[in-house]
């Protein structure tokens, strides 16, 4: 896993209180990790803070899985 993926994973574990082995690339925040719509807003804010990127609302709406978040951040930082 890339450094970004590791950091994303840690944020997800901390915020959603889920086991590390559930936080895989294809895991959906809402369907697999028990998040609700407010949790996902807070997750996006945590990603912004951690990586110093801005994630506009329309982009945030398309970040549904752990992999989506990693991809968005990798692209934003490229």
């Amino acid at each position: 896993m890339s450094d970004i993926a590791e950091r994303v994973k840690k944020i997800v574990i901390d915020h959603l209180g889920v086991d590390a082995d559930k936080v895989v690339e294809g895991a959906s925040f809402i369907d697999d990790l028990g998040a609700d719509s407010l949790d996902t807003v807070e997750l996006v804010m945590a990603f912004e803070e951690e990586f110093g990127v801005e994630i506009p609302d329309d982009a945030a709406d398309s970040i549904l899985t752990v992999g989506d978040a990693v991809k968005f951040i990798e692209k934003a930082q490229a």
Binding site: L38, V41, E42, M45, E48, E49
Partner: peptide, 10 residues
């Protein structure tokens, strides 16, 4: 304002 948590109010 972008750093105000969605859990601030509830």
């Amino acid at each position: 304002p972008r750093r105000i948590s969605p859990f601030f109010i509830p």
